[in-house]
Amino acid sequence: MAKSSRYVPPPSTGWRKLPIGAVIPWPGNSEEYKTGSWRTLRPVIDQERCIRCAICWMYCPDAAIIELKQEYTTKAGRKYDKTYVVNYDYCKGCGICANECPVKAIKMEPEVK
């Protein structure tokens, strides 16, 4: 069963080829499962408004908010050393981040306009 990490057995796999007990011995293979396709609304972060409080990062149930070491300076001249962005591969569009953001910096926009 020494498949590389993130292997996902093809849907046609028979019982002989599956590890017993439904064990998944390929660590991290849930990364292959892109929940981003579930979304009808997508969160969009307004970097001008965002105060980098990390509340969305904490609340996201899918760890789809990513903290980047990337500087940003607002038009008003305020400097930040990090930036929060959404990983749309996994963001399910639940809207929790938008609901929790204390400054309403996240807007939920329709996937299909």
């Binding site: 028979g14 019982w15 390929w26 660590p27």
Partner: peptide, 25 residues
């Protein structure tokens, strides 16, 4: 050191095979 998942969800397209493995065992 060698992480793996024990006791995951087994949706209809997988569950049956694991039960059959138990029959065989």
């Amino acid at each position: 050191e060698n992480p793996m998942t024990l006791g995951p969800l087994g949706p209809p397209e997988w569950y049956y095979e694991f039960k059959y493995q138990q029959v065989v065992a």
